Simulated scan of single mutants.
Amino acid sequence: MTLSADQRTQLKVQKAILQVEDHLVTWIQDALDQTNYGDLEESQFRNLVRVADTTESPEVIKNFLRYQVGRDKKWGRGNNSLAEKIIQNIDSDIRQAAQKIADECETNLKPIWIELIRRYLGYGARHLKYLRDGK
């Protein structure tokens, strides 16, 4: 069976995404380890993961996170907050990684960016569980 050009591109994209997973894990662990936030519960972080899973828009994800910051202090406040660090990572490191993959694979940025954000946040939920219950 011969793969179509689109299938070959998708395989190339998936392989490239796997190559940046270590960075995604490190970025979210650093965000959780090095920023200020309150008594953030795993369920609240999972709500952010669910939003990411149900949208194709990085802006919707950031909007939801800002909404959560407005509701209570569990995500932190100010420039050294967890919320701000996650938004910075989405806009800088994650976007740059996605752009590199999109350029190399000659495909659209947005689906790759969303996939990387989803993985990043999923790894964050795991690390938060460790920080809350594993230490």
Rank of each mutant, 00 (worst) to 15 (best):
E56G: 03
G70L: 06
L121E: 01
L24W: 02
R77A: 03
H23R: 15
L109H: 12
L65A: 04
Q34T: 11
V20C: 10
K110Q: 14
K100P: 00
C105L: 05
A98S: 12
R119C: 00
N79R: 09
S4P: 03
N89R: 07
L116G: 08
I114S: 00
L18C: 01
R66W: 10
Y120L: 02
Q68Y: 12
Q99V: 00
D72L: 04
I114C: 03
R50T: 07
Q34G: 09
I94K: 08
E21R: 14
E115A: 00
F45L: 15
G70K: 06
L11A: 04
T35H: 05
K15L: 08
I112V: 12
E42T: 15
A125W: 02
G70H: 07
L32Y: 13
R46S: 14
Q88N: 15
R126I: 09
Y123F: 15
E115V: 00
A16E: 11
K73N: 14
V60I: 10
S57A: 12
I17E: 06
K129L: 11
E21S: 06
L3W: 02
I28W: 08
Q14A: 07
S57W: 07
K85E: 15
V25S: 07
D103I: 04
T35I: 00
N80K: 13
Y37G: 06
Y37I: 03
G122T: 04
E56D: 13
L11Q: 13
R66I: 04
D33G: 00
V20P: 02
T54F: 08
D39A: 12
I28A: 12
C105S: 14
I87C: 13
L128W: 07
E41P: 02
E21V: 04
F45T: 03
Q14S: 08
Y120S: 03
T35V: 01
L121P: 00
D30L: 04
D103Y: 07
E41A: 15
L48R: 04
L24C: 10
D6S: 11
D103K: 10
W27T: 05
H127Y: 15
A102F: 04
K15Y: 09
A52W: 00
W113V: 01
E41F: 08
E21I: 05
N47V: 10
Q88S: 14
I28R: 09
I28K: 07
A52Y: 00
E56H: 06
E42A: 14
H127I: 01
R50P: 00
E56R: 02
K135Q: 11
D33C: 01
D53F: 03
L128G: 07
C105E: 06
Q99T: 03
T54V: 04
K74L: 11
L24A: 10
S43P: 03
G38A: 08
V51C: 08
E115P: 00
K85R: 15
E56T: 06
K62G: 13
R46W: 10
N79S: 14
D33N: 10
K73H: 10
Q7M: 06
Q10T: 02
S43H: 14
K15Q: 12
E42H: 15
K12F: 13
A102D: 04
K62H: 10
K100S: 11
A98I: 03
